[in-house]
Deep mutational scan, measured.
Amino acid sequence: TEDEKKIQELLKRANGDVSKAEKLAQSQGNEELARRLREYANK
């Protein structure tokens, strides 16, 4: 999905570090994506 692409892109930029990727999403003002990242990471 589009969200998964965004999540994978963020994870790439954060070198696979979920908490960093989450902070990136939040810094972009994207709380929804940050929440999805957390769920994605907890799979």
Rank of each mutant, 00 (worst) to 15 (best):
S27Y: 09
Y40F: 07
N15Y: 07
A14V: 10
L37H: 00
T1E: 14
L24V: 05
E4M: 12
E32R: 06
A25P: 00
A14E: 03
N42P: 05
A21L: 04
A41S: 07
Q26P: 00
K6V: 14
L33Q: 02
K12I: 11
N30W: 15
N42F: 09
N42T: 12
K6L: 15
L37T: 01
K12R: 13
N42E: 12
Q28V: 08
E32F: 05
K6R: 11
L33F: 05
K43L: 13
Q28G: 07
V18C: 06
N30D: 15
R38N: 04
E22Q: 08
L10Y: 12
A34F: 04
G29P: 01
S27A: 14
V18Y: 15
R35P: 01
K12T: 08
D3E: 14
Y40T: 03
E31L: 13
Q26D: 04
I7S: 02
N15E: 08
E31D: 13
A25T: 01
S19M: 11
E2Y: 13
Q8A: 10
D3Q: 09
N42L: 14
E32I: 05
Q28T: 10
L33P: 00
S19V: 12
S27T: 08
R13E: 14
E22T: 07
R35V: 10
Q8W: 13
E9T: 05
K20R: 11
L33E: 02
A21I: 03
S19P: 05
E9Y: 05
K5N: 09
R13K: 12
K6S: 11
N42A: 14
E22G: 03
E2S: 11
K5Y: 12
L24F: 07
E22W: 11
Q26E: 08
Q26T: 09
T1Q: 11
L11P: 01
R13C: 14
A41T: 07
E32N: 06
R36T: 06
D17W: 04
L11G: 00
L33M: 06
S27C: 07
R35N: 10
A41V: 13
L24A: 05
Q26M: 15
Y40S: 03
L10M: 07
L10N: 01
A25H: 00
G16Y: 14
K20D: 03
E22V: 15
E9N: 06
K6I: 15
T1K: 11
R36L: 15
S19R: 14
K5P: 07
K23M: 12
D3A: 10
R38E: 03
G16Q: 04
L24N: 03
E22H: 07
Y40C: 14
K6T: 12
N15V: 02
Q26Y: 12
R13Q: 15
Q28E: 15
D17H: 03
L24D: 06
K12N: 10
A41G: 07
R35Y: 06
D3H: 09
G29T: 02
L33T: 02
E9K: 05
Q26I: 15
R35M: 11
A34D: 01
Q28R: 04
A21C: 00
E4D: 13
S19T: 11
G16M: 05
K43G: 08
S27R: 08
I7V: 07
K6M: 15
R13G: 06
A21Y: 01
N30L: 15
E4Y: 13
G29R: 03
Y40W: 14
K23Q: 13
E22N: 03
N42H: 09
G16S: 02
L11V: 04
E22Y: 13
I7C: 06
R35K: 14
R13M: 15
E32K: 05
E22F: 11
K20S: 06
V18N: 02
E32W: 07
I7N: 01
A34C: 05
